[in-house]
Computed example of a mutant assay.
Amino acid sequence: MRVVVVGMAYAVVTLPVDTFPVEYRAVRDVPISASVGGSGFTAARTLAALGDEVYLAAPLGEDAEGVAVDVAAYRYGVNSAMCPRSLPRSPRAVVLECDGQRQISRDLGEAPTAHVDLDLGALATSELVIVDGVLPTAALISSAQATGVPVAAALGTVREPPLLEQQPYLAAELLVMSHDGRDEEHLVRTWRRRSAARLVVVTLGERGAVGMVPHSEEVIHVPARHLGGGLRPAGVGATYAATLAHYVFARGCDARGAMEYAATAAAWTIAHPGEPDGLREDVLEAAAARPDEAAQAS
Rank of each mutant, 00 (worst) to 15 (best):
L187F: 04
V188L: 01
V188Y: 06
V188D: 01
V188I: 08
V188C: 03
R189L: 11
R189T: 14
T190H: 08
T190Q: 12
T190V: 05
W191G: 02
W191P: 07
R192D: 02
R193L: 14
R193N: 13
S195M: 06
A196L: 13
A196I: 01
A197Q: 04
A197C: 10
R198L: 06
L199H: 05
L199N: 06
V200F: 01
V201H: 01
V201I: 12
V202P: 12
V202F: 00
V202N: 09
T203Y: 01
T203C: 04
L204S: 05
G205P: 04
E206K: 13
R207Y: 02
R207G: 05
G208S: 14
G208K: 02
G208Q: 04
G208I: 10
G208E: 03
G211P: 07
G211Y: 00
G211V: 00
G211H: 01
M212Q: 09
V213I: 15
P214V: 07
P214D: 07
H215Q: 14
H215F: 11
H215T: 10
S216N: 11
S216H: 10
E217N: 11
E217H: 10
E218L: 14
E218G: 12
E218N: 12
I220C: 14
I220K: 05
I220R: 07
I220Y: 02
H221V: 15
H221E: 10
V222Q: 06
P223A: 14
P223F: 06
R225T: 09
R225E: 05
H226N: 11
L227A: 06
G229L: 14
G229N: 15
G230W: 02
G230M: 09
L231R: 09
L231S: 05
P233V: 12
P233R: 07
P233Y: 09
A234N: 13
V236I: 15
V236Q: 07
V236E: 15
V236N: 11
G237P: 13
T239Y: 03
A241F: 06
A241D: 11
A242W: 00
A242D: 00
T243H: 05
L244W: 05
L244P: 00
A245F: 09
A245H: 04
A245T: 09
H246E: 08
H246I: 11
H246K: 10
H246M: 13
Y247F: 14
Y247R: 08
V248L: 15
